[in-house]
């Protein structure tokens, strides 16, 4: 990893060992530029939340260094906390307080004067479309409203850098789209840097400028979504020829950009650098060889494939509940208690 000075978020060989035995993060380094949206992907228990905690001054690394906005996190924790906003994986809003009160109290904890804090709370309530629910107890909020409130609370002190730990967990498609369009807008308006962990790979694909995939505490791949997909060996083109046509394998194989070819019945699955370039060549070649192409599909590999390629396909048995499980469980506990205490 290049160590560009002035990165908004810099991780240098971060290591976290829990209780002297669980190596949750094992030498992670990366550099997030100001204004970048950086996605941090990985299976359950890979070490995403642990990394976020170390970067956001919540957890002291066992070794290595975290820098935020040019400040060393372990030396300047309080100042770092002023510059960052964190949306935790689990819900942190106070159910006994209204949404508005949650926001006003949060503003106060950053030393924002009461009047100014109340104004910001009102503005965020409006932006997050919580106006109707603002004066209801947060325990009565739906999952989506809760997430929006979490985001509002994380933004009340106008951070330069935002950490989002599975921010859209449990949101419906509209909720997720709305959430991301808001982040996008914020980013365009304020140059916010965003560090996001998510299990929704489509989200990461469209929203992130760059992605790192972490597994067993180590980064296994980094790059823009397109770079990562290209590394997998490009597109998959499926060609169908008319019934009874001759075998076209020998015709297709030598075409420019073809990586591999599989024949199944009357169709050919061709892995190639670029589908768009191959298709006209292949159709023409087949036609010249006397076989009419009756169907074509081009499939770009999705980030799902990239993810599975790097982190393996087997289902992971976790030792103990993952943070996601814990978050879901706590939501149930809250529900069962009705937020009562």
């Amino acid at each position: 990893m290049s160590s560009r000075i002035g990165g908004a978020i810099v991780a240098e060989d971060l290591v976290k060992v829990y209780n002297g035995k669980v190596r949750a993060v094992d030498g992670v380094s990366f550099n997030v530029s100001p204004g970048e949206v950086f996605g941090f992907l990985g299976p359950n228990g890979a070490g995403k939340t642990t990394t976020v905690s170390m970067l956001s001054a919540g957890l002291r690394p066992t070794s290595g260094r975290a820098m935020i906005d040019g400040l060393e996190v372990s030396k300047d924790a309080l100042e770092v906390k002023r510059r960052i906003g964190v949306i935790f994986q689990e819900s942190t809003a106070d159910g006994d307080l209204t949404g508005r009160e949650n926001l006003e109290v949060a503003a106060g904890t950053y030393g924002i004067p009461r009047g100014e804090g109340n104004r910001r709370a009102e503005a965020l309530i409006h932006q997050m479309q919580l106006s109707d629910a603002a004066d209801r107890f947060a325990k009565t909020y739906s999952g989506g409203m809760r997430r929006r409130l979490e985001l509002a609370v994380g933004l009340v002190h106008r951070p330069k850098i935002l950490f989002l730990d599975e921010p859209t967990l449990g949101l419906d498609p509209q909720g997720r789209a709305g959430f991301w369009s808001f982040i996008q807008k914020l980013k365009d308006e304020t140059g916010l840097t965003v560090f996001v962990t998510t299990h929704y790979l489509d989200e990461a694909d469209t929203m992130c400028d760059r992605i790192a995939i972490i597994d067993h505490g180590k980064i296994v791949a980094t790059g823009s979504p397109n770079e990562l997909k290209d590394k997998l060996g490009g597109d998959v083109v499926t060609l169908k020829t008319a019934e009874g046509a001759a075998d076209m394998s020998a015709v297709l194989k030598p075409l420019a950009g073809v990586v591999s070819l599989q024949k199944q019945d009357g169709s050919y699955r061709v892995k190639c650098a670029s589908g768009e370039t191959l298709v006209p060549l292949a159709v023409e070649a087949c036609a010249r060889a006397g076989a009419g192409v009756t169907g074509v599909t081009v499939k770009r590999p999705s980030l799902d494939e990239v993810f599975l390629e790097y982190t393996g396909r087997e289902f992971r048995e976790e030792e103990g509940p993952s943070a996601t499980d814990r978050a879901v469980m706590m939501q149930r506990v809250r529900g069962a208690l009705g937020g009562r205490r």
Binding site: G58, F88, A106, T109, M330, V333, R341
Partner: peptide
């Protein structure tokens, strides 16, 4: 408040 994550929020602030 610790169990409900509320304390974590407070700890995350520079208060």
């Amino acid at each position: 408040d610790k169990l409900f994550g509320i304390f974590k929020r407070t700890r995350g602030t520079p208060a």
